[in-house]
Design a protein around this nucleic acid. Sequence first.
DNA 1: GAACACCCATAGGTACTACTTATTCAAGAT
DNA 2: ATCTTGAATAAGTAGTACCTATGGGTGTTC
Lengths: 244, 244
Amino acid sequence: MPQQESPRDQRERGEGGGLHSRVLAELGPAIASGEHPPGTVLRIDDLESRYGVSRTVVREAVRVLEAMHLVESRRRVGVTVLRTEEWNVFDPAVIRWRLAGADRSRQLKSLTTLRTAVEPVAAGLAADAATPGQCRELTVLAAEMAAAGRAADLDAYLVHDIAFHRVVLEASGNEMFARLGDVVAEVLTGRTEHHVMFTAPDPEAVTLHVRVAEAVRARDAVAAESLMREICVGALRELDILAP
Amino acid sequence: MPQQESPRDQRERGEGGGLHSRVLAELGPAIASGEHPPGTVLRIDDLESRYGVSRTVVREAVRVLEAMHLVESRRRVGVTVLRTEEWNVFDPAVIRWRLAGADRSRQLKSLTTLRTAVEPVAAGLAADAATPGQCRELTVLAAEMAAAGRAADLDAYLVHDIAFHRVVLEASGNEMFARLGDVVAEVLTGRTEHHVMFTAPDPEAVTLHVRVAEAVRARDAVAAESLMREICVGALRELDILAP
DNA sequence: GAACACCCATAGGTACTACTTATTCAAGAT
DNA sequence: ATCTTGAATAAGTAGTACCTATGGGTGTTC
């Protein structure tokens, strides 16, 4: 099955679907990237004419942005861009928009710090809760990462890396952790795009992934946790070197 | 300043503001609590007549629910409730709706597990990054918790407890952690409401809070982290006893 | 002259209607 | 049995008319 894509996935990127998604796909990033700094007041009429759509469409897009706490709409005033502290920074759409924007590296850093907190705990839980199928998946994915690493195939490496972390988070049995799979995917993708200069992945990281898979399989929660922590702090350190 | 309340806060609870927020405040919880189980198809016309509002209003509410990934709207089909794995469980509104609903205790558990992962790391970072003002705040809040504990004043205890954890998360200097302050507030509130039977807070927890404040003040990251971990695992254990 | 109350212009909020378009389901052709 | 085609349907879009809250300006009062 070739990764079938839901109509919603397209819509979120503003490709398919309704007009309001297109407006959202332009306005969202514009705000998230700081193009319209906090305090800016947007007028519905302006947006209407700027995007060449009806008021209905603009209002729906604004409602969504409001739900993400990016803007606040008030009578007699307009649509005000809120301070960044108000934003729902956990919303996958907001994360994507910000990563696409200006201070990408600052974003990557704070997201990687989050990983450092969450993933080790998730790995520890996964050692207790993973199904035999998930254990097998992890082993296979780690092996494929190793293979891709040897072949210096960065694309394949990324795909398996993302899949690996996603399985760990899902195997933890905690829905909150599981939902961070998308976040991790964005971070890893962003990271690879960032230092495209590197020719091959860090062999040490590969080894750590293999050992995490082994630890989960062996039901060794302590080892799984500390190995995953090593992976994450490694990622954090790497980031500090490349983008101070 | 008496905790001034923004018009948006009201709107989110469906009190003030527009009609669409009222629809959202009814429909959101109905979905999040499982009243409309995943797979259910809602028709816009139905909602329109059920809530006695115009189509415009319903559509805006639906757009917001769609942004939270609670539902998916498709032509010729209707508004379909998505599987829970799709939901944006980090959205504060979704968290609140779910905590108000049926399996509150399962929610509390998965949220507390998240705390166990995040808060210790945040405390460690706070030990490095907290401003003198934040250090002072923590000390004061811990003292007030102790006082409220001795007086068996659960309400005051809750307020200071929430404030304490919020300051730690903010002091970490990581915006992702900072935004989890609201989540922690919901969890603590939910927890207190849950075992209202208890007459006084755990004195051991109080001591731990005081020691966290001291560790942060002393810039001892390792101690701050492990003490905060004790607080969180304590909360988790407590929860396991009360709601197995 | 400062504080207060009042009024009006404004910009978002709501409603209603007409029309468009994608999509499903089914009937009929191959 | 499978593919094509078409009609029914329900969401999407547009445009308009009207409602309503509210910020700021005006005028009055002490």
